[in-house]
Amino acid sequence: MNTDKRQAITFPAIITLFVFAVFPLLIMLFNSFQNDDGTVGFTISNYLKFFSKTTYLKLTGRTIFNSLIVTIISLIISYPLAYIMAKKLKGLKNIVMVLIIIPFFTNQLVRVYSWLIFLQDGGILESILNSTGILNGPIGILYTKTAVIIGLVHAFFPYMVITIYMALERMDNSLIEVSASLGASAFTTFTKVIFPISMPGVISGIMLVFVPCLGSFVEPRILGGVNGTVIGTVIEDQFFEIYGWNFGAAIAFILLAMVLISMAAISKLGKRYDI
């Protein structure tokens, strides 16, 4: 009896979450089955519209592709850094760690804006490249897919550095020595010993980069301009420009489904390595 009374203090948080997080999603689901032309009643026309138009399907493909590219680039640049931090840097390790964490707490808009200034025509990168002779003329990188990828990698790769670092840090260094003393080459040691052990970190890193990338809309909009259209920006347009709120709700649900499916798939992948 006493136990029941004490658990009641969880209710304020739980009620807040149900009212302002779970319930709104249910309303969004309801809206996604309503028509935008004012007719009342249940309809699947929003979903039909999305899946019958190649524009939207292409967009979905592009969003997934973008997120994949960002995840792969993040993995390629994060792994060596995490490895160096875990195994090579001694005292500097903590400083590098802090430097990796700080960007989490700098405003997303500020970061995107800083890339905008950095990459723009007539900006500082252009004048550096021109003065060193690498480039002649305008740089023309802003408002391209490349700019979006650069911005998204910048936003998310630190998560991956941290998860991989934590996995590598836990690893027993003697395993590497044993592998080497048994005659394995550095490459074999990496593929057979180090990489499999770091796999849980790699998987959580993939989760923390790929999933938020799917739902990004600020970086694609600001750095990509018209070339940055992804599902997130289309949803934003439905709400702020086109006023197709119910259709927007349907796309948002499709995005949510993509997020949940990829989370489930990635964590299933992770189970294989969790011993």
């Binding site: 997080a21 709104p24 999603l25 969004m28 709120w245 997020v259």
Partner: peptide, 26 residues
């Protein structure tokens, strides 16, 4: 409780924001 409380961390804020907007309109 755990999955409900951590949910807003995994769902894109874009979706959280506009679902609240839809709640207001509803």
């Amino acid at each position: 409780f755990n999955s409900v409380s951590m949910m807003p961390m995994s769902i894109p804020w874009l979706i959280m924001g506009l679902s609240l907007l839809l709640l207001i309109r509803f």
